[in-house]
Write a protein that binds this DNA or RNA. Structure first.
Lengths: 201, 201
DNA sequence: ACCTGAACACCGTTCAAGT
DNA sequence: ACCTGAACACCGTTCAAGT
């Protein structure tokens, strides 16, 4: 099944190889030639499936969003009330970033640089946003979050979680805080100002 | 003043050249060889001042933090009450990211990757954090922000602004919102949940 | 349609040598 | 101490050629 021609799905094999390199050796090791090598093809083979390196990165970023969506969906499925779902989503978001920092970073590195558009990436991005928006509007309905423009509220909550995670990956959160509190505690404190029932430390 | 030896400050000239490349051509154009060329020296000359490319990037990131600090300091100096200072800082933070997206991104790209430490970068980072913390604690004293652990509160506010800016640079904020509201409006809505006097849209 | 191998311009890094 | 020029291994991309 793999003589001169590949198993028929080189495109996805390249994406998987890229993600594995990201996970094991980091973003500086993500080269087209290494990806091709890991997939068992010549260094020029990827060009049959991707226009250039940026296109492969866009595909890897879209897959990052897809995996993130799965984690968020799984995290909230097990909870019933809206607040627990919001916290579970926040925790799953942070956990994905901690588990796969380089894949997470590349997903939010701004691949969609104005001119070129990558439809799959955009679709996955919107799908993820929609999931968070459902949780946020449920919280608004339940009186847990302030009422108001749901899109605006979603951006606020999402950006808040995202910023915390980004700063953490960039080693910009004071070590004293990380030593003193657990991740769920930190996220809880962090989202507390948004809640209508405050119990700030 | 520039025969065989350089003007005596090649190190800073390289940093400035790097920032200029970042500003004009973006992060993918930031190569040691181009930086050297722009500074008017051979491609091996930078190694007399930086151990490797990562060390130059760390210096550029530290300078990014320094410039960010200046913008934030200037923004709040002109305001008297604490809330106006908080908003001015948030606005200046976003403006720096919009004006110099690639320099901003590289400043928060996680140069301090565990093992190696870059003292100047760490110092500038802490200096910036301290500035935000003063504004935040002043807001707490004035009853504008909820009371509580000042370091925790600073992280919350900072992460919230940072996340919004990062998502904007990654084109992840819905275009409808960007079209409908101005940047100060968006930042105001975004920080509203933290304030004790809410006027959510 | 899908892949290979050679080729080209470019990059990070090292090192002997020059002042 | 500070810089140059040649050298090496590697990278992204292109292209003629093979099945």
């Amino acid at each position: 099944m793999n003589n001169s021609y590949h198993h028929g799905d080189l495109k996805n094999a390249l994406i998987r190889a890229g993600i594995e390199i990201l996970s094991k050796d980091g973003v500086q090791a993500l080269t087209l030639r290494q990806v091709a090598k890991k997939a068992g093809v010549s260094h020029a083979a990827p060009y049959a499936h991707f226009a250039d390196k940026q296109a492969l990165i866009a595909a890897i970023a879209a897959e990052g969003y897809r995996q993130l969506y799965e984690k968020l969906a799984a995290a909230q499925e097990s909870r019933v009330d809206a607040l627990a779902r919001l916290m579970a989503v926040a925790q799953a978001y942070a956990q994905f970033a901690i588990d796969e920092p380089d894949h997470f970073k590349i997903t939010f590195s701004g691949v969609v640089e104005a001119e070129k558009d990558y439809p799959d990436y955009v679709e996955q991005s919107k799908r993820c946003f929609a999931l968070v928006m459902v949780v946020v509007t449920d919280c608004q309905s339940g009186g847990i979050l302030e009422p108001g423009d749901p899109e605006l509220a979603t951006v606020s909550v999402w950006a808040s979680i995202h910023g915390f995670v980004q700063l953490m990956l960039a080693n910009q959160i004071p070590g004293a805080l990380l030593a003193q509190y657990s991740m769920p505690e930190l996220l809880s404190f962090h989202l507390n100002p948004f809640l209508r029932t405050n119990t700030q430390p």
